[in-house]
Structures are given as structure tokens and as C-alpha cells.
């Protein structure tokens, strides 16, 4: 969400001062009616303004597109079924950067992607390779991260590394772009710089994270390292044989969106491994009714908190009557310090 362009100009900037003026000197703090009055007056303070002014921070913030450093990598040719090197995307020191959208365009949309933060021990923003279709769109419908990725460049540039793996079986030319907000904070006075710095310190603790399927039954894919489950015609994988999303030790994950890419139709249900196997539906859901893609993701009506080391099983049944490779991605926000 864009920062507000205009801000209310309050007659009294400090709510405490506003309340003090309203009450005068002595009040009985234990009086229930008094606290009701305080709440009423606080609402009054919120509504008491004499106009708006343009947000000064808007002068130093801009939309910003982050592309691969090298022009040749901006339209990267990835060999058939091959993986690329880790492609650098550098954020220079001219201002902090928040990534909010992911976009791609490719000869074939059938490829996998991994994003790493080189400035943070190459920590990944996913637990394994993720299918690009489930986490990226285009300008018309970009994939919106549920929580922006925040990169503080106060002291040094930051580097994102992105690796692509083709799954189309043919040479694949891939364009990839991050989009977000650039804070050209060094172009502002010290007070604004300080406020921006504080905000960025806080925001780095929360970030979006992609969970691919793990626990894929051995032999269900042509290559067990790929994050897809391959169902044979009309096959079902249920309960302990089902793959799952897992939130690992270091953080809780609030799942917000659920996306897929598959060769054919299937149906699914989500089952908790804790809580005696509670199922999040009263039956199997057809894929197009409960999963989306990067452009039109399925957004849970209520975020699902997957606590650390908990598993959420994805039970599946093929409906295509043919071999069916299914990639599923749960998109959420990582709560590292909860």
C-alpha cells in the first residue's frame, strides 16, 4: 500500500495535551465514567483537525523496479531442464528498498525459482524451489507479497540472488523483476532519516515466506528433489502418505494465500497433524475452487497460523485420469520473533 499522500493537520498534536485541556486539573482516575469520557475525547481528538498537508516522506519515496544486475541476465536463457547460476540483483546504497511485487515473463511459464538474501547468510525466502507461476505475475496482475521484504542499505549494498530451474524441457528465456518502494532517505533531513531507519529496523523481523511441499512420497516424482508430487491417473494420497507444508524451527508462519500449478485437475483437502487431524473443509475441494496462481491467488478468508514444527497435510486425489504433476505453494508471513 502506498504511503498516504496527505496527513491531517491537527489543532492539538498531542492527544495527552488535548485530554488535559478538556479535563482541566483534578480528576478521579478510578471513576468508570471518567474513562468512558477519556475514550470519547480521544475519538474527538482524532476527528479534530483543520485540514491536511502533503506527506513530506512522499518527496523521498518512489516506485522502483529491481532487475538483474547484468543486462544479459535480464532476459536470461536457461537451458532445457537446467538450473541457472544464482543471478545477482543488487540494491545500491542510495536508499532502503521494500520489495512488494514479483513479476515474470518467459518463453515457457514452466520453471522454478528460488530467492536468497545474500546479505543474510544467503537465507532463502522459501523452504525449497517454488514454481514461478505460484508466486509471480505481470504488471496487470503482479503477485503481491503479503508482507514486504525490507532491505536496509544504511551501511552497505544488499544483494538478492535468484536461481531459475527450467521444467519445460526446452530452452527458456526468463525475465524476472521485483517491484516495490524505494526510500531515497539520504535525500532528506536527519529527522526523517532517523524515522525511516527505525522503521526499517523493525520491519526486517517480519517477511513473506513461501512454503513448498515437503514429505513427498519417495518415488512419486521422476526426481525426488523436485517440489512436485506426481500422481498417477486417479491416484489419491491421504493421511500419512500425503505431502505437507511445515513451518520449521526458527519461525511461526501465518499462511495467507494458497497457489498451485498442475498438469491436470485434482481435488484436495488440508489436514492438521496436530489437533487430532482436524480437516479444514468438510470434503475434498476441486483445485480451481481453493487454489489460485500468482496473478489471481486464492486468499484465505482468515490467515492460518502454522506454528513452528507443525505440519499441514495436503491430501490429494487426481481427477485428470492421467499422470499429474502438482506444485502447491502456501504463501505466508514469517513471524521470527513471536
Amino acid at each position: 500500500m502506498s504511503l498516504p499522500t496527505y496527513i491531517r493537520r491537527r489543532r492539538v498534536a498531542d492527544p495527552a495535551e488535548y485530554l488535559h485541556r478538556a479535563f482541566g486539573e483534578r480528576q478521579q482516575l478510578t471513576d468508570r465514567a471518567f474513562w468512558h469520557r477519556v475514550l470519547q475525547l480521544h475519538k474527538g481528538w482524532e476527528e479534530d483537525y483543520e485540514g491536511f498537508y502533503i506527506n513530506p516522506v512522499k518527496r523521498i519515496t518512489r516506485p522502483f523496479w529491481l532487475l538483474a544486475d547484468r543486462a544479459a541476465d535480464q532476459a536470461l536463457v536457461v537451458g532445457a531442464s537446467a538450473a541457472s547460476a544464482k543471478i545477482p540483483f543488487t540494491i545500491d546504497t542510495s536508499g532502503h528498498y521494500e520489495v512488494a511485487y514479483l513479476m515474470f515473463q518467459a518463453t515457457s511459464s514452466n520453471f522454478l525459482v528460488e530467492v536468497f538474501d545474500a546479505g543474510n547468510n544467503e537465507a532463502g525466502f522459501q523452504n525449497r524451489e517454488i514454481h514461478a507461476v505460484t508466486v509471480a505475475g505481470t504488471a496487470r496482475r503482479p503477485f503481491v507479497l503479503p508482507e514486504s521484504w525490507v532491505f536496509n542499505v544504511e551501511d552497505a549494498p544488499r544483494l538478492l540472488l535468484v536461481r531459475f530451474t527450467d521444467r519445460s524441457g526446452s530452452s527458456n528465456t526468463i525475465r524476472w523483476a521485483f517491484h516495490g518502494r524505494r526510500w531515497f532517505h539520504k535525500d532528506s533531513d536527519g529527522k526523517v532519516q532517523e524515522a525511516v531507519f527505525r522503521r526499517f529496523q523493525r520491519r526486517e523481523r517480519l517477511f513473506s515466506y513461501f512454503l513448498g511441499l515437503t514429505g513427498i512420497p519417495t518415488g512419486s516424482t521422476e526426481d525426488d528433489n523436485l517440489p512436485a508430487i506426481r500422481l498417477t491417473a486417479d491416484q489419491a494420497v491421504l493421511e500419512n502418505r500425503a505431502p505437507y507444508f511445515i513451518s520449521t524451527d526458527e519461525a511461526d508462519t501465518e499462511l495467507v494465500k494458497l497457489n498451485f500449478r498442475s498438469d491436470g485437475a485434482f481435488e484436495f483437502q488440508l489436514r492438521e497433524t496436530q489437533s487430532n487431524g482436524r480437516i479444514l473443509s468438510n470434503g475434498f475441494i476441486r483445485n480451481t475452487m481453493g487454489m489460485g496462481d500468482g496473478e489471481f491467488p486464492f486468499v484465505f478468508p482468515e490467515g492460518y497460523l502454522l506454528e513452528r514444527n507443525h505440519r499441514l497435510l495436503l491430501e490429494l486425489r487426481d481427477l485428470s485420469s492421467a499422470q499429474n504433476d502438482i506444485y502447491a505453494t502456501a504463501i505466508g508471513r514469517r513471524l521470527q520473533y513471536a
Binding site: 500500500m1 502506498s2 504511503l3 499522500t5 502533503i54 512522499k58 518527496r59 519515496t61 518512489r62 516506485p63 522502483f64 521494500e98 512488494a100 511485487y101 504488471a139 496487470r140 496482475r141 503482479p142 514486504s148 517491484h179 516495490g180 518502494r181 524505494r182
Partner: peptide, 13 residues
């Protein structure tokens, strides 16, 4: 395009 315009994450003032 007009039907599905790109809405940048931050406006430019």
C-alpha cells in the same frame, strides 16, 4: 492497460 493498470506499490509525487 486501462482495465488492468499497473498500480505501483508506491505512488510518485
Amino acid at each position: 492497460d486501462a482495465e488492468f493498470p499497473f498500480i505501483p506499490y508506491e505512488t510518485a509525487y
